[in-house]
Each structure stands twice: as C-alpha cells, then as structure tokens.
Design a protein around this nucleic acid. Structure first.
Lengths: 250, 250
DNA sequence: TGTGTCCAGGCTGTATACAGTGATAGGCCG
DNA sequence: CGGCCTATCACTGTATACAGCCTGGACACA
C-alpha cells in the first residue's frame, strides 16, 4: 500500500523529476560540455519527456547554478573556474559556520543535541583498528546526515534552507570529495581530522561558544578545499571521479 | 533605435516577465494573503497571459522564496514570521560581510576602489545642513548601488550572485526600510550612522583588514533589524509601508 | 446524528501545435 | 576572391487541448 502510494507520488511529477535528474546526470556525467547549448527538442527526445516539464527542469537547474541562460534564448551548460569551486566551498563554510553560531547563541533543544551527538558516536564506529577496514560508505552517509542536521540545529528554517542551497552545487557538497574515493590515502587520513572537527563543533555549540563554533565550521569546510587542491595539483586523474569537477574549464 | 531594440527585448520575454512582476506585485501588494492557494487559471486571466509563462514565473518565485509548493500540487503564498525576517536580515549581513572580507583579503582593483569611494562621496552630498532638506530618494538609490557594488568588490562572480540572492526577499533588501519612509524621524537619523559604516567598511577593505570589514558589514545589516524592531514594537502602522512586511503572520 | 463512501467539478501536470526570432549558409556584388 | 546581404531553417517562447488527481459536498447507512 505504501509502495503503491509512493509509486503514485512518483508518477505525479515523474516527468518533471525525470527531466531534472536526467539533465543533471547528463551535465555532471559529462554528456554535454561546458558552454554547450542545450537544445530542448534534443533533450526532450533523449529523456523521453515533453518539452514542457523539461523547461521546468531547465529553469530549476539554472537556479541551482548548473546552467545559464543564453541571451538569445535557451540554456547552456555553465562552466566553472577553479576559483569558482573555491568560492563555493568558502560559501558553504560561511553558511555552515553561521548555522553553527546561531545554534550556539540561541541554544539547541536537548533532543536535537542528543541526536547529533549520537550521530557523532555512529561516525566513530566507522573507524576501525586497521584503516583499510574503515566503513567508508557508511561514513559518507552519516557525514551527509551530520551536515544536514547541523544546518537545522539553529531551529531556523530559513537558515537551513540556505545552507542546503549552498550545498546544491555538486563540488560544494560536504560529501563531494568523499564519494568513491576510499582508495585515496590522503582523503582517508583527513577523515580522522574531520571527525575531530565534528566533535569540536558540537561541543562548541553545546557550550554556547558561538564564535568558536563558527570558526570551526568554516575551517571544517576548508578540508574540501585541501582535497580540491590535492586533486588539481597532485592527481588530476581524480577530476573525473569527483562529481561536477569535469565542469571546470580553467 | 535603442528604444525600439529595448521594446523588442521586452517583447521577447514580455509574457514571462509580465507574469513574474505581476505575481510579485500581487503578493507584495497584499492582493493575496499568506497561505492562500494561487490558482493558475485565475492568475493567468488576471494578468492577461497564458498558463505556460505563468508557471515559469511561479516556479521562479518559489525559488525566490515568496511562494511555496503545496504537496497536493500548485503554489501558495508563503507566510513569514518575525523570526524569519530577522534571519533573512542576519543572512544578508553574513553574506555582505563575507563579500567585504574577501575583498579585503584578496585585494581590490584600484578602479573598483575609486568607484566605490566616489559613491560614498555622492552619498555624502545627500546630507544637507537641515535634515529635512536631505535628498532622500537619491540616497536610497545610491545606497542600493553601494551595496550592489560591495557585493562585487571581491571580484568573485559566485559571491556576488549569492549576495544578490540573499537580497531578493523584499524585507531583506538594503533598501527595505528606506523606501517611502523619509518622514520617519528614527529612520532618517540612522542614516548618519549608516553612512559612517559605509565609509568604515570601505576603509577596512582598503587597509586589508578582513575581519574588521566583515564585522562592520554584519553590524551594518543590523540597522535593518533595528528598524524592523521599531516597526513591530513602536509603530505597527508602518508594516503596510515596508514592502513584503504584510506577509508576516506572527 | 455522525460517519463513510461516492460522484462531480475544478485544477494541475503534460503534450503538442503555432508563431516569431535568431542563426547560418549560400549567393551576389564589389 | 572576399565581404555583405538575404533567405531559409531551426529553435525557443507561447497558447491551448487533454487527462488524471484532489477536494468538497451530498447521500445513504449505522
């Protein structure tokens, strides 16, 4: 019954959703190149949907920042510079930092505090005696949940929305450099540090140390920057493995 | 010729634009109440456009945060709490502060620095010996330009976009509590303070004092919060005169 | 009298037809 | 032979028709 309801729900906006996911995958998967114009008819045919829901998807992806409008009409894949990616990461750090600061300043309900502390304990369990035994996939999932929960910790719906927004760009996501990277030693080692930062951020929030919480969250986002620098300078072959990094032009 | 070109340009997306502006005016002007469901056919008929461009406008306004999607389909006017407005202002402060900090840290081109300093001088000219002679309208316009320029001072297109975004919500705009408020003494007096902050922000940026620039920009946004508190506690009749404030429910 | 069910109306989501505009290629003139 | 102009074509923006779903009300039964 529940499954059927969900099927119905999916079918309700299946076309628009199919278009959104389809175009996004196409862009991030490298099916289309930065700067390339996206033809509506071609896309509609390729995705098996009509132009109307496709246009809705395109408009949304433009808001997300993945596409840009062409003056003469239509949309094109947006190209990013390395500086853009740095800025997107910086922006996420600033917003997560603000969410952390507000949570500290305004106070967090005991229930929420308990929940996020439990999440940290769960994250701890992902680490094993031997680094190669680490539960990587579970860490990635829990890490995403942690950041999502952190965004909502201040109890401000508006702040939560904005943090989620800043996370939309694929390379700005807290999980951007984690997924499918378990075999890169440098990334694995940084997780120990990251987890320590998780703990400190929550601790600062609990002790109502707003400034410290903000600074820690900002610094935590810097890990992504370090990972990006590693990818760009040490091992550019990884570019294809981080979602969205193929959109970088210069 | 130029005028004709512009007419053509307007006609190009006149329907979609007409829908966007029309619905926005309707929502902000109080033509529809918070929580109220917006019927597409009714709106399309009222605005004299078809449903297709209207839907594009509605989707965009949902991204802007003025509308929200109804689970059963369609859109409704989003209601805001006072806390939401506070948060929106706080958010603008944080983002403008980040733009100022990055400008200070990364340095600003002499041309841009000269331009924004010139803007400050222009703003100075709006003040007269007698407060009642103040060039209010010009101040409002120049103030908007100052904030727009500040957003782009860091030379980061991404940061500029995000600051502009945070400014979209009408009550979060730097001009929110300025327009049509020249006869409110409390607001007029705060402009002297605001202009001093403008000067200090630019000065901090020029001297590469990133932290100070960020703090000043954040505090500058707090002026809007003070104005909002004044409106809500001292003179609620002003609610109808600040664009978007009619959307506040609690 | 209250509750559950069924029906009708309206509404959204989708598809498609059409018109206007920009781009491109080919031809003509210099 | 090259540059400019023009005509055609493809593509987007818009309108509208259609189908499925949600909602509200009325009726029947407990």
């Amino acid at each position: 019954m529940v499954a059927e309801k969900r099927t119905v729900d999916r079918k309700r906006d299946s076309q628009a959703l199919k278009g959104l996911l389809g175009v996004r995958d196409l862009v991030l998967g490298g099916g289309v190149s930065p700067g390339e114009r996206l033809s509506e008819v071609w896309l509609a045919e390729k995705l098996g949907i009509s132009r109307t829901p496709l246009r809705a998807a395109l408009a949304r992806l433009e808001q997300e920042g993945l596409l840009e409008q062409i003056p003469s009409g239509g949309y094109a894949v947006r190209g990013f510079t390395t500086a853009d990616v740095f800025d997107a990461i910086e922006l996420r750090g600033v917003l997560e930092g603000t969410a952390a600061r507000l949570a500290a300043e305004r106070g967090v309900t005991p229930a929420k505090l308990k929940a996020i502390k439990g999440l940290i304990l769960e994250l701890d369990k992902c680490f094993r005696d031997r680094p190669e035994d680490m539960l990587f996939d579970q860490y990635v999932e829990l890490n995403a949940e942690f950041h999502s929960m952190l965004a909502g910790l201040a109890g401000s719906e508006m702040m939560r929305r904005e943090v989620e927004r800043a996370t939309q760009l694929p390379f700005a996501s807290p999980s951007a450099f984690l997924e499918k990277q378990e075999d890169v030693l440098a990334f694995r080692l940084s997780l120990v540090h990251a987890q320590r930062q998780h703990r400190d951020i929550v601790s600062a929030i609990e002790m109502r140390e707003g400034t410290r919480a903000e600074a820690l969250a900002r610094e935590h986002a810097r890990l992504a920057r370090h990972n990006l620098e590693f990818v760009m300078e040490e091992d550019r072959s990884l570019i294809t493995r981080v979602p969205g990094l193929t959109l970088i032009s210069t």
